[in-house]
Design a protein around this nucleic acid. Structure first.
Length: 290
DNA sequence: CGTTCAACCTGGGCGC
DNA sequence: TGCGCCCAGGTTGAAC
């Protein structure tokens, strides 16, 4: 589910936890698969209780929480709690949709005056999400330049051309490659290419040189609009903001999930195809060879 | 290098 | 109603 706009909205929704001291960390009834948590739950708890949340950042589609230790421990370097929501993960500061799928609960110390959240939790229905406690090196290995290209909100035509212009891959498949540009997923890849008028099946190397500038411009603009709309919420138990509100960008979708419906620009029926095992939606008349 | 497939999971929707 | 199948916003690793 969450792509860049949704994760960025989660990040903003967690602003209230910055500066808070962690009083407790729980992983309810081991509802996190062993493979998706590292190190072991008990180790994470032991290592981060007492730390303060120094910052909440986003790396591509991950939330990355910087933790600061008090006193002498601070000299051992920073710690990062990296949460990757994958398909159905949510970061929440309010009641979760179900207790059953709560994977992690971080409790904060009481604060005078009351206002800020008392806890932050990770809820994940399908359980494909991951939780990792990392040091600086681990963070770099997980989402450094080797794994992530420029962020989708700031990517340039030059960035894309340098990474993709020689590629044989279909342009839609390439936009999902996080090493090329970080943060684009299946919804936004489709919407970006519709707005560019580019056929998702076009091979990167056959795109004209100026296409990359156009794709980058549209990518930044469209992702920024989606962030302003607090992301896309489709269906019931789906993406929500950290305080459990639905996003609004789904109203602006022009192709994603609209197979058979009329293109808002030309009236033709939107088509669904499969590329690399994933659905691709596009307008067969509006989207051509760039 | 690039593609395909399976796997990791839960649950909604649909056809029969 | 129930059952089986397909589908879903993501990522990874193995096989070809």
């Amino acid at each position: 589910m969450p792509e860049l706009p949704e994760v960025e909205t989660m990040r903003r929704g967690l602003a209230g936890v910055v500066g808070r001291k962690i009083a407790s960390v729980e992983f309810p009834r081991s509802r996190v698969r062993p493979l998706s948590i590292e190190p072991a739950a008990a180790t994470i708890s032991r290592r981060i209780v007492g730390h303060t949340v120094a910052a909440v950042e986003r790396r591509g589609k991950r939330i990355v929480i910087e933790l600061a230790a008090a006193g002498a421990a601070a000299r051992r370097g920073r710690l990062w709690l990296a949460i990757e929501p994958r398909m159905t993960g949510l970061m929440l500061v309010v009641e979760p949709p179900t207790e059953e799928h709560v994977r992690m609960v971080v409790g904060f110390g009481k604060v005078r005056g009351g206002g800020p959240p008392q806890r932050m939790l990770f809820w994940d229905r399908r359980g494909l999400g991951t939780i990792r406690l990392l040091d600086d090196r681990g963070l770099d290995a997980a989402c450094g330049p080797h794994k992530h290209g420029p962020d989708g909100l700031v990517v340039t035509g030059g960035d894309l051309a340098a990474r993709l212009a020689a590629s044989r891959r279909a342009v839609k498949v390439a936009l999902l490659d996080q090493r090329a540009v970080a943060g684009i997923g299946n919804i936004y890849a489709a919407e970006i290419l519709f707005r560019c008028g580019v056929d998702p099946r076009m091979r990167c190397r056959r795109l004209p040189r100026d296409a990359w500038e156009r794709i980058a411009d549209v990518t930044r603009a469209l992702l920024a609009e989606a962030v302003a709309d607090e992301g896309s919420s489709i269906g019931d138990e789906t993406y929500r903001t950290a305080d459990n509100r639905v996003g609004r960008f789904q109203r602006r979708h022009r192709v994603y999930g609209r197979e058979g419906a009329a293109c808002t620009a030309c009236g033709a029926a939107i088509v669904r195809i499969v590329q690399v095992q994933r659905a691709t939606f596009f307008c067969p008349t509006c989207q051509r060879r760039a």
